[in-house]
C-alpha cells in the first residue's frame, strides 16, 4: 500500500491540451446571441453554434494526433510485479 502523499503526482501534461479550452467559448452567449448575419435563413445564434461542433472536433482531434506518439507508460522497468498485483486483490 502506497502512502497517500506519494500518489498526488503522476500528471502528464502537454501544451496541446490547452486547445481543449477553445470550444468553451461557446458558453459565452453575448458573442452570438443575435439574429444576423443569417445563413440559409437561420439566425446567427443557431448556425454559429452548429459550427461550434466542428471547432470541438478539431480541438479533440488535434490533441489526439499531437499526443498520440507519447508512450503512456514511461519506458524502462518502473513497475514490478508486486506493485501490479496490489490492485488485483479487490
Amino acid at each position: 500500500m502506497a502512502p497517500p502523499k506519494k500518489s498526488a503526482s503522476g500528471i502528464r501534461w502537454s501544451p496541446w491540451n490547452l486547445l481543449l479550452l477553445v470550444p468553451l467559448l461557446l458558453l459565452i452567449t453575448p458573442f452570438f446571441n443575435r439574429s444576423g448575419p443569417e445563413f440559409i435563413g437561420m439566425p446567427f445564434f443557431y448556425w454559429f453554434q452548429l459550427l461550434g461542433v466542428v471547432v470541438g472536433v478539431a480541438a479533440t482531434s488535434t490533441v489526439f494526433a499531437m499526443t498520440k506518439d507519447k508512450p503512456t507508460t514511461p519506458p524502462g522497468p518502473g513497475r514490478d510485479v508486486d506493485e501490479l498485483d496490489e490492485g488485483a486483490t479487490r
Binding site: M1, A2, P4, K6, S7, G10, G78, E83, G87
Partner: peptide, 8 residues
C-alpha cells in the same frame, strides 16, 4: 484514508 492506486 488509504490510497490503493499509484500514479502509474
Amino acid at each position: 484514508g488509504m490510497d490503493q492506486t499509484r500514479p502509474d
